[in-house]
Design a protein around this nucleic acid. Sequence first.
DNA 1: AATTATTATGTTAGCGCTTACATAACTGCA
DNA 2: TGCAGTTATGTAAGCGCTAACATAATAATT
Lengths: 335, 335
Amino acid sequence: MYLPSLAELALGSRLKTLSDRFYATVDEVYRSCGAGIESRWFPLMRFLWEQGPTTVTEVAEAIGQTHSAVSQLADKLVREGLLKRRNDPADGRRCLLLLTGKGSRSLERLGPVWAAIRQGVQDSLGPESRRLLESLQACELALDEKPIAERILARHAALTQSKVEIVPFEPRLRTYFHDLNAAWLKKHFVIEPIDEQVLREPEHRVLEQGGAIFFALLGGEVIGTCALLHESAGLYELSKMAVDEAYHGLGAGRLLLQAAIAEFHRRGGQTLFLESSRRLKAALHLYERAGFVLQPTIRDGSHYARADVYMIYAPQPAPAPVRKRITRLRSPHKR
Amino acid sequence: MYLPSLAELALGSRLKTLSDRFYATVDEVYRSCGAGIESRWFPLMRFLWEQGPTTVTEVAEAIGQTHSAVSQLADKLVREGLLKRRNDPADGRRCLLLLTGKGSRSLERLGPVWAAIRQGVQDSLGPESRRLLESLQACELALDEKPIAERILARHAALTQSKVEIVPFEPRLRTYFHDLNAAWLKKHFVIEPIDEQVLREPEHRVLEQGGAIFFALLGGEVIGTCALLHESAGLYELSKMAVDEAYHGLGAGRLLLQAAIAEFHRRGGQTLFLESSRRLKAALHLYERAGFVLQPTIRDGSHYARADVYMIYAPQPAPAPVRKRITRLRSPHKR
DNA sequence: AATTATTATGTTAGCGCTTACATAACTGCA
DNA sequence: TGCAGTTATGTAAGCGCTAACATAATAATT
């Protein structure tokens, strides 16, 4: 699934889809049971059933819709013979909606169906059912309290001031090194044993071997990381580069690369390479712009099963030296 | 709010509303930031940005939409100049969607906006943000695994077999006596001190005073309750009647009333009365059908501030005696 | 009483999406 | 090789809802 990776950014889309699925499910049940009503009619009809004749606007507020929606739905239900409209004697503008005998009778027969729906949903979702309802209510309250747009714009104003900051490894950030990398590895490939070792013991596997690790911070939050591995004298590997997907586009990747390259120079390195995969288009683009040059072969003795791209850092316009032994490019895993 | 009381029955409706609110919020933010894109375009564009040129169907699957929706959205984005369509050389049926330069540039500028959206949502929802996302994912997985409609229909088949069952008080059910009543009290009124006492200590306040309590069970689950209070010699009060809103329509209310009335007779009671409120239309209707008759006055020395209806059990067609002292009917609380 | 707001509702155009269908291109098997 | 089935996509009609407007009744103010 792609949408979950976008977290808060695609909530509208996911909620809509889920909503449609619930509507469709309930409609299927109603059809199977010969209920004679549709899922979208339910809030209106149920409300009238409980509360008796009610004006359009009151219903609309109760069921969280616009008055237009209620008015139009009412027209349709009148045509179906489930509803009547009646003028409010006390106020000529108002229009009372009330169930007809047929409407009431339809609902009265639905008791067992509703119970079954509740139980069926609970069966399917388990304890998640309760949690979803609680989250929903909390969100509704939060939205009512203060429009989120305000907070977002405030955050945006703050963000355009603040910059992504690059810091070196600290023990308390170790877990981020693992989690940020595990996210993209799991999404696109699998976590190979060598990955797990490096990610779990960065001090031992990276720092003590003469490498370095950097983190990208935004407003104190860790949003990305990358490692410079010391392979052998003068030979370094750029690896374990990861930026939280929700924070792509802030330039964190570019800054991490720059930091790693600066460190490579500071340590007097001679060759800096990286291995990657053609599937990671955005990353490859980033590497190119930072001065890495695509090699026509994969690296001899590659560390990773997923590697089908080999790049060498060569900031000068002159291309980096090409290795003699030519290996056939592995084709990317076909989906 | 009315919809939350429907719990699992109105999920579609609530999710839809929430979805629309998120869309609207994000659109407002995009407009304020001059982003030049709309919230509904985001999943498609972001996906193309990350993955490069992709066919319509692949995009549709990734972002959880139909191919038609993607195709139509693509047309619109092509008109906006953000997208290009290109024929797949390898397969003449396919159509690759890819961002134009303008499209890519629009997205590249959005990094800080996305970060602000994430942070803003988290600010507003607090820890609920994470919980909502987790619940969402769990629901999506559950729906994918097995269609809920099947389970609901299975439950429905079982329910139409099984019946609502009425049982007397047991200590282990004490909490239901409280919770079921607290639900409607809180929804329509407030919990008065006398309510709290009776609900918290039913053994002391009801049973030991010569009263009785009944519960309605459905498939072992407690869905309703009601109490018969012993007021004085021969005088009983029907009170604390509550049925879980999601299980209205199964006849639990009627059965509870019948049980209480039978108990009243068994104990040789002479008068059985109840106090209620005009706002509880459905309940009043139920009382009438069970043989209670509306009195023109409220009860002298009423127990409850919310009471504006006084009914006496008089199963014969002959009306119950009317008290002498006439008190003005309190008008219902105007909303 | 006359006026100006406010409130309640219906109406219209349009958006986003779906379903159902149509069409074209590809695949596999006899 | 040819034909049936499958796959990828576009198109049309329609649904549910919204925003924007129109209208009428009521409430508030002068």
